[in-house]
Design a protein around this nucleic acid. Sequence first.
DNA 1: CTGAAAGCGCTAACAG
DNA 2: CTGTTAGCGCTTTCAG
Lengths: 347, 347
Amino acid sequence: MSSTRRVTIREIAEMSQVSVSTVSNVLNGRTTAMSAETLQRVRRVVAEVRYRPSSVARGLVTGRTSTIGLVLAEIETSLFFSAIGSVEHLAREAGYNVIVCHARGARDEREVVSLLRAKGVDGIVFVSNSEKDDDSHLLALPAAGIQAVVINRPRPGREIGRVTWDDRKSVAAAVEHLHALGHRRIAHLRGPHSRQSAKARLSGYRMGLRSCGLPFRSEYVRLGDYNDDPAGWAASTCELLALDPAPTAVIGADDSVAAVAMRTVQQAGLRVPDDFAVVGVDDQMFAPLLNPALTTIRLPIREAAEGAFTMLLGNLTEEAGGMRDLRLPAQLVVRESCGGAERTARN
Amino acid sequence: MSSTRRVTIREIAEMSQVSVSTVSNVLNGRTTAMSAETLQRVRRVVAEVRYRPSSVARGLVTGRTSTIGLVLAEIETSLFFSAIGSVEHLAREAGYNVIVCHARGARDEREVVSLLRAKGVDGIVFVSNSEKDDDSHLLALPAAGIQAVVINRPRPGREIGRVTWDDRKSVAAAVEHLHALGHRRIAHLRGPHSRQSAKARLSGYRMGLRSCGLPFRSEYVRLGDYNDDPAGWAASTCELLALDPAPTAVIGADDSVAAVAMRTVQQAGLRVPDDFAVVGVDDQMFAPLLNPALTTIRLPIREAAEGAFTMLLGNLTEEAGGMRDLRLPAQLVVRESCGGAERTARN
DNA sequence: CTGAAAGCGCTAACAG
DNA sequence: CTGTTAGCGCTTTCAG
């Protein structure tokens, strides 16, 4: 291993005929009171050898690493990946790097947090799938000088930032939209109760029904567990179709479930949206590609990720704690799968 | 900021009534020649205060950070995200963390590499979208003691690992499959020429045609630029359908293009797969959710990512350079969109 | 306005 | 088998 030894600040100093502290000063922009000539010389040498100070050494002395952790609970749903892109982009612009970690449960998360602390990250953003977790390990973060913000998850403590969106209200809005389109029998393929967001969506479904003056019928709610097999979603859809009276619209637990529901409905000989309307939740990349294009509730994951990082950075740089709360709207993206407004009321 | 100061190895030593080196030894498993009693004592203290040595300090002295970089060229395609999950999983099991970076072009990539070097990463894996890039900045890595492996991209140098799959051959296999199903007029919605993989797929298309004794007709090849708007893909599909004789099957540049092609065909009144077959490339998460479920070429991204990390780790730990090359198969996943084998030859 | 020197928290010789 | 000590590469007082 002939590892060409890395260039050090000392060597730069020698080559530039100045002391290390001078080099350090130009490196860190403390260049106000410095002879222009010296500055030039140092800069030239630095550029010539492509010198870049070791972040590790710098981190040891400053206590900051310009690195943040991003811990994802659910790395499977591609939607959450978009959070990585957003955070990474903003982070790099601000001179930060991001270490991505996957933490399935609370146990895993504790371990990850411990690791990230050892790594000396300046802050951590947690993107949750909203499982109910033990949060004590998050509480210790601010005291240790590590900023933290959670996305889509209950706030663990006052000093921890939080960004959320309203699953409940947006699903209710979807119900209302369907109602306005003339639908009176609206079903819901609900997600697993283990997910906070799935429960919120179910609750939003009931809320929407209520606000439209529609009755809640338990037989119109079936399981569409997005962590499970698509066959189950199709089966639930078939059950819905077999009901008398059958629903004329369904809101899926997420876009995948909605896609399968739509297919199942179509394969049963019904046309979407003419005979049956389908709406999803997520607005995944494929939603506009389906036939018909899927109307869905757009979850503001990107915005949330950006907001979280911005919050983190703010709390990191400013003395006085900055913003600690951000609520984002989740809005219905109307495409083709629920038909146009020209539909007449039906029974 | 009342940052509770971090516990140091010295304090652990004092609390355990031993020297720092002893603590360091137990921390690093050099515990063979040590009184069991001492070992116990140190371990208890470490556990009690939840002490975890600073990776930063350790990194400074050892020259290793147990961190690897993962640089993605195309962070948009959710498919590449699965690489993150794979690498992160394996990495963490091996005691590594991964810093994820997005680098659009060569310029960006140079910058990222420089940054990652400053951060002291032990290795870097590059996931490419196969744009033709300047690779000189990769060449310097091994000499600097940083392992590197590229995925889906030409090998920049002998000391750099590489994992690839054969786009060409797999598309040819898809053509052959279609031919076996009775299709004689097979079209291709090609990707942009700026992408190496798109060119390889086009080449595979021609190769497949040849091996089936089918003529290449340039009017059967239209643009389906997956970086562009879906409207363009639909337009290209319409052009194909307007041809006389029209093709009876199409291979999309990727799954998204295929999805839109399928929809366009269906909206033109044709049934898929009965009247027209569609096959995609990627096997994205939504492929099995379409109606009908999309037959597609499964790109081994996960395996590639895993292979890349394994290679990296091998080259990192073993003295003698380990494996430097890995070719993975990309196989056709037959679902519903191209019909069963019962189709009879048509003209 | 520039240079010398003291660490940051840890590892790894090297003595005892 | 355990303790002392010299750095890793950098930042940052503090003198000159």
